[in-house]
Computed example of a mutant assay.
Amino acid sequence: MTWTGVFPAVTTKMQASGAIDIEATQNSIDRLIENGISGVIVLPMLGENATLTQSERDTVVRAAKEVVAGRVPLLSGLAELSTDNASAAARNYQKLGAEGLMTFPSLAYRTDRQETVAWYKTVAEASDLPVMIYNNPIAYKVDVDVETLKALVDVPGIVAVKEETGDIRRVTDLFNAFGDRFDIFCGVDDLILESLALGAIGWVSGMTNAWPAECVSLFNTARGGDFATALPLYRLLTPAFHLDTDVKLVQYIKLAEHLVYGAPEHVRKPRLPITGEERANVEEIIMQAISDLSCLAGRKVGKG
């Protein structure tokens, strides 16, 4: 199996009470698919996975399966503390209809290389689902680096790496070490053009939740080698893309969705809504992007 294209990390929509808004979540997934994304990832960190009960996670996967309806691959995030729980979760998500897993490292503590290898090998062998390794050492303090992946290269269930170290040199290091063995996905929005230039074939994106058509266009244009066309759009969106790397990315991206198309921006505690100067600053970035995108679209229409 080869995954490629834009795979948004879908936000889980909430009501003001903190309860999951299933209808809004399904509507957002349908909007993403209608705008050309290549796959859907529910229950990512951006989807507030860690704040949900297992019953709620199951509900989200079932609801996503219903609305996706086979149009694109459906992946589920898998974030657990223990190996046994992670293995059980892998089997459970397969039973619920997920077609792949984006697997976090253990959330229990910082595993060393041997433990990290054992974790991913066990989870990958627990179900028939292909696994994308979620490599975000900035947030989770575990780096699935080249040496770690060498110990996992013979595990057939591991098919992709979400590369989120923030070090663009890692993309080339992975290709030099493994060729095409793993599908390399860019995991941060503000490195997508650089990652594509170095050979990445996919993008796990946050801000695609707000601007799916524009992000798909950016990806396809750049992957096709037309960087002269892609650069203006990338530069325009980069201030908003920077919000994807902040500790409050959930609040920021949900606010972007709210401003762009009216989605609910509620989050679940302990996250709180952003207010005051912080909110004003984020709104300014998002509204500037909305305005600039409108002007860019107008110029294209005029040119045509």
Rank of each mutant, 00 (worst) to 15 (best):
D292L: 11
I192G: 13
V67M: 04
T148E: 10
L149V: 12
A98I: 01
V10W: 03
L43W: 01
L249T: 15
T111P: 13
R279C: 15
A210I: 09
L46C: 08
L196W: 04
P130F: 09
T25E: 10
V153K: 06
D167P: 05
R169F: 08
N85E: 12
R271G: 11
E214R: 12
L193P: 04
V301E: 06
S17V: 10
C215M: 14
M14P: 07
V267R: 00
M102F: 06
A16G: 04
T59W: 04
E56L: 10
V146S: 02
R113D: 09
L32T: 11
N92R: 14
C215Y: 01
I253Q: 14
E48Y: 06
T11V: 15
T83Y: 09
G100L: 03
P270D: 05
A69D: 13
N27F: 09
Q114S: 09
V260A: 13
A139F: 13
E34L: 15
I286F: 06
R235V: 05
E214L: 06
Y140N: 15
S205I: 13
I158S: 06
A16H: 01
T229Q: 14
T275Q: 13
S294V: 10
D246V: 15
M45L: 15
S217Q: 12
A256C: 11
P156C: 13
N220W: 12
N49G: 02
T59E: 13
V188Q: 12
A89E: 10
G224T: 02
A79P: 02
P73H: 01
A98M: 00
T51M: 11
L191V: 14
G77C: 08
T116M: 06
G225V: 01
C295G: 12
A126E: 01
I22Q: 03
P264H: 08
A86S: 04
V155M: 01
T103K: 04
V216T: 01
